[in-house]
Amino acid sequence: MTAAPLDLASIRLAPKVLLHDHLDGGVRPRTVIELADEIGYEGLPSRDEAELGAWFREAADSGSLELYLETFAHTVAVMQTSAALRRVARECVEDLAADGVVYAEVRFAPEQHLDGGLSLDEVMEQTIGGFEDGMRAVQAESGREIVVRCLVTAMRHAARSREIAELMVRFRHQGACGFDIAGAEAGFPPSRHLDAFEFLQRENAHFTIHAGEAFGLPSIQEAVAYCGCDRLGHGVRIMDDIVVGADGLAELGLLANYVRDKRIPLELCPSSNVQTGAASSIAEHPFDTLARLRFRVTVNTDNRLMSHTSMSEEMLKLVEAFGYGWSDLERFTINAMKSAFYQFDKRLALIDDVIKPGYAVLVG
């Protein structure tokens, strides 16, 4: 048998694992418009599906994390009711499954969805319910299985992280797999939320931290050394602690060595990292350097609407930039599955029964 071509159609057939994807950053443009009509939201820059999708992409291409985050005002505004949350969560699962994703951890900030009168618990119930609706629909329509779990996020500029951490723990047996903090990094260090992280550690709960995207090594240092994160959300700026000589040999600083030695996963999001200015281009993205140095790199979408992307498209961009083959994509996928906030035996089962056989077919 010959190997499948490394094109978008073939990559879509490959089983994928997604660890860093924002629910409010992946809403279908048509859904944004319809939900806005339902609640009378007048703030959309366009009510044409194609134009609105293009606006999100163009507005996100700012080179600034702070400006990039402003695009979320519109998606969050239309996600304030039970029906809206449930619909967006269901469609998220359907869209990921159509792209070949077999396991995903989708994150969102419940505190941003209270304007319609819902409580934090109701927001969680509806969102997780939507994920469950989507998983059942995929199984019924295609016979395939996808596992989607919820990463509960607190906003780093707010003061509710301990409350949101407690919310995550309450729902951990109902589909919540871990905790995260997100939002602008500069001026809002991870250690500001130390109480939440210490609580989670006492509760034996997993957490990742957005760090090393718009802000450099101090953010990563705090996330790792002070807060004890399991994974780094982005972490692309770990390159600031690596010097690559003219001979191609790399010298790692203490922090970079520690992150690599401890196998702390990096939730890299190539297209988004370019949009926010963390990398100048896909070709200049440090993904390949980090992969060659055997950091635990993973491929992620971050925000599928704002970046007009999918897991398959992110993988294809890396193939085109760095010449990766099927074995490389399989390694990145296994890296992600190993790093998932999922039971060990279930991680192994997905690797052995789904991921490896799925790539074996494509390799030929």
Rank of each mutant, 00 (worst) to 15 (best):
G134R: 08
G134T: 04
G134C: 06
G134D: 04
M135L: 06
M135K: 11
R136W: 07
R136Q: 15
A137E: 10
A137H: 11
V138I: 13
V138H: 07
V138A: 07
Q139T: 01
Q139R: 14
Q139N: 08
A140N: 13
A140P: 02
A140K: 14
A140F: 03
E141P: 02
E141K: 12
E141N: 13
E141T: 11
S142W: 10
S142D: 12
S142I: 00
G143D: 09
G143A: 11
R144W: 05
R144H: 12
R144V: 00
E145L: 12
E145V: 02
E145M: 03
E145K: 11
I146L: 11
V147N: 05
V147Y: 02
V148E: 03
V148S: 03
V148Q: 07
R149M: 08
R149E: 14
R149C: 02
C150M: 12
C150W: 07
C150Y: 08
L151F: 04
L151G: 01
L151E: 07
L151Q: 08
V152D: 06
V152N: 03
V152A: 08
T153P: 00
T153G: 00
A154K: 01
A154G: 13
M155K: 02
M155T: 01
M155E: 05
R156M: 10
R156P: 03
R156A: 04
R156S: 08
H157V: 09
H157W: 14
A158W: 11
A159Y: 12
S161T: 11
R162T: 14
R162E: 12
R162Q: 07
E163S: 02
I164F: 03
I164V: 15
